[in-house]
């Protein structure tokens, strides 16, 4: 689900751009560490494969068909960091070349599908590496459920007022989509393994199992929480009121409500947004600069 521009409030898209930019810089560095430079074309071509794979229709239900999303498949083949990077390249290409998803909302889409989606796919692959079928199904299921749940939550926070019934319906449709992605991922990986087992190596053994277990619990809580929240938005508001979230701001932001504190009234909001974009770009550049320096030293 690619969110176009103007659907998210300034608060949401700017925050997620700010989160995604340094995170992608970090992922790029991690992916670079274990990567032979000569393998870069392979990653790019696999990205093109995921694009093209979306033309292969899988029959589900009566007269309807679904296609692969690909985050979990890439994670199973490449491992988490390269998969997240390839997904980022795919999402950026979709936004710029096909106007599928917004450019300002790129951070949100990358966060939902490339970062959170790939993490949600990696965790079961790592945790249940002994049970191949379960882990592959869960990887596909959780990656789509995570991305869709996050997108739904971001739209709701941005003030898109969906009637509760419609929200519950779309949450249900996303849940079905997640099950289908799990089935497709499982079937596709097994079919690829039959052709050549070397293409899909053994489950990733790096990283500690304890961390993976904690991450799995976190992913489950987030996914279940997102769906519960989107099914009952009034309940979440209620909890917010109980917790008295808005009573005492911990830190008075210099640009509260995303408008500059001074200057002509008409300039405050666009100037704040542009300044924010500049800060996001600057922080990403600074992050990659320092990371690169650390790598070369």
């Amino acid at each position: 689900m690619h969110i176009p521009d103007n659907f998210l409030s300034t608060r949401v898209w700017l925050t997620l751009d700010g989160v995604a930019a340094p995170a992608v810089a970090w992922v790029a560095r991690r992916a670079h560490k274990g990567l032979d430079e000569a393998r870069i074309p392979l990653l790019g071509v696999l990205g093109a494969f995921v694009f093209a794979a979306q033309m292969v229709n899988f029959p589900v239900g009566v007269g309807t068909s679904a296609h692969l999303v690909g985050g979990a498949l890439l994670t199973a083949i490449l491992g988490p960091a390269p998969a997240a990077l390839v997904m980022t390249a795919i999402i950026a290409t979709q936004a710029f070349v096909f106007q599928d998803g917004g450019v300002l909302a790129l951070g949100a889409n990358v966060f939902n599908m490339a970062l959170a989606g790939v993490l949600a796919a990696w965790v079961p692959l790592r945790l249940f590496s002994g049970r191949r079928r379960v882990s592959l199904f869960l990887a596909g299921f959780l990656s789509v459920a995570m991305s869709a749940g996050l997108a739904l939550a971001e739209l709701t926070i941005s003030g898109i007022r969906m009637p509760p019934r419609l929200l519950a319906l779309s949450a249900g449709l996303f849940a079905i989509g997640a099950i289908v992605e799990g089935m497709i991922t499982l079937a596709a990986v097994r079919a690829i393994e039959r052709l050549n087992p070397r293409w899909i190596g053994p489950a990733p053994a790096n990283g500690s199992r304890a961390w993976a277990a904690i991450a799995f619990a976190a992913v489950l809580v987030v996914v279940v929480g997102l769906f519960a929240a989107s099914g009952a938005p009034d309940g979440v508001m209620q909890i917010g009121q109980w917790a008295d979230l808005h009573a005492r701001p911990v830190w008075a932001a210099p640009m509260a409500d995303y408008s500059l504190p001074a200057g002509p009234l008409w300039l405050r909001r666009p100037a704040a947004a542009m300044l924010g974009l500049g800060l996001v770009g600057g922080s990403a550049v600074a992050a990659s600069y320092f990371l690169l320096r650390r790598r070369s030293s």
């Binding site: 790029a28 560095r29 074309p41 990653l43 071509v45 990205g47 694009f51 390839v86």
Partner: peptide, 11 residues
Amino acid sequence: PRLLVLMAQTL
């Protein structure tokens, strides 16, 4: 990131 740009080019 350079790696991302290279990947997007081949993609």
